[in-house]
Design a protein around this nucleic acid. Structure first.
Length: 288
DNA sequence: GCGCAGGGGGTCG
DNA sequence: CGACCCCCTGCG
């Protein structure tokens, strides 16, 4: 396949580090020259910054501009969103100043489901390693610049894995969960196309929660980071609990902070922008 | 140096 | 509310 290039001129709200390190994705890696290379679908893309321009190059099934506009959420006005959120309070203003270049990627729903099941009680280097090994074993090889990349396996491809196979790839106790969820989706006990079409937020969330290994936190990550793109979702993990308590609740015993209390505050303060607000806060607190 | 708790973007029973 | 796999960190 032929290499393509797309240059986004005078890009606003687009910082490589913010996008790839804010915790939404696991398959982008930094190169020695500071650019990032990643694989999504059957596309291998390298992204670099050149002044105010963003340079996308790589191999793509379709036109690279269309592909990247969709995946990197380029048709959404983040300046406007940041403006609104910054007015809420000083905490939001500061967190946005820190993570001003964040964009929420439109990642494949199936891949996002499995990736975040793997993320449970796990750390990022290990999560990335597991996903790489799964892809290498069950995905397709794509060669770009003389290097091999592996697509994330399809439902059918991953359904060939036994629980034991998954255990050998280092999934630990998540092996059964990934196995069960894969087969639930394969058998269409949960139909991903229906999920994409469903308008009602709670219905989508409830359906995701029926999957093995998907609890509230993982469900909210899937809702926020995949093509479902539900910004009402507000994933609460240890970091978000920490930052929300520190800023808005100030309970001396952080572990005692009620989840519903956090959700209530998030909904009241951020409304339908809760999900993206969570990303700015999470990234700010975790990095700092 | 090495061994051993401690803990990590939670979920399940 | 404790256990769960695996790996990495920090401490003695």
């Amino acid at each position: 396949m032929k290499e393509q290039e797309f240059i986004l001129k005078n890009a606003q709200s687009f910082e490589l580090k913010d996008i790839f390190d804010c915790g939404q994705c696991f398959r982008w890696n930094k190169e020695e020259d500071g650019s990032y290379t990643g694989i999504f679908g059957h596309n291998v893309i390298n992204v670099s910054k050149n002044g105010e321009d963003i340079v996308f190059k790589g191999i793509c099934n379709k036109d690279i501009e269309t592909t990247c506009r969709e995946y990197f959420d380029l048709n959404r006005n983040y300046e406007e969103i940041k403006g609104k959120l910054s007015k809420i309070d000083e905490h939001m203003r500061k967190s946005i100043e820190y993570g001003k270049g964040i964009r929420l990627l439109n990642q494949d729903l199936w891949e996002t489901i499995i990736s975040f099941i793997i993320s449970a009680n796990n750390n990022i280097p290990r999560i990335k390693g597991i996903i790489e090994r799964i892809s290498k074993r069950y995905g397709d090889e794509i060669i770009y610049n003389e290097k091999s990349y592996y697509t994330f396996p399809t439902v059918e491809q991953l359904s060939k894995a036994t629980v034991e196979d998954l255990r050998k790839l280092g999934l630990g106790f998540r092996d059964v969960r990934v196995y069960e969820t894969t087969h639930m989706i394969l058998e269409k006990n949960v139909d991903l196309e229906d999920l994409e079409k469903e308008k009602d937020f709670s219905k989508v969330r409830e359906k995701l929660l029926t999957l093995s290994g998907v609890g509230p936190k993982v469900a909210d990550c899937i809702l926020l980071f995949s093509t479902l793109k539900r910004w009402e979702a507000f994933p609460i993990d240890v970091w978000v609990r920490r930052v929300m308590n520190e800023l808005y609740i100030q309970n001396e015993n952080e572990t005692k902070v009620n989840k519903t209390q956090i959700e209530k505050i998030a909904r009241e303060k951020f409304g339908d922008l809760a999900g993206i607000a969570q990303q700015y806060l999470f990234y700010w607190k975790r990095e700092a």
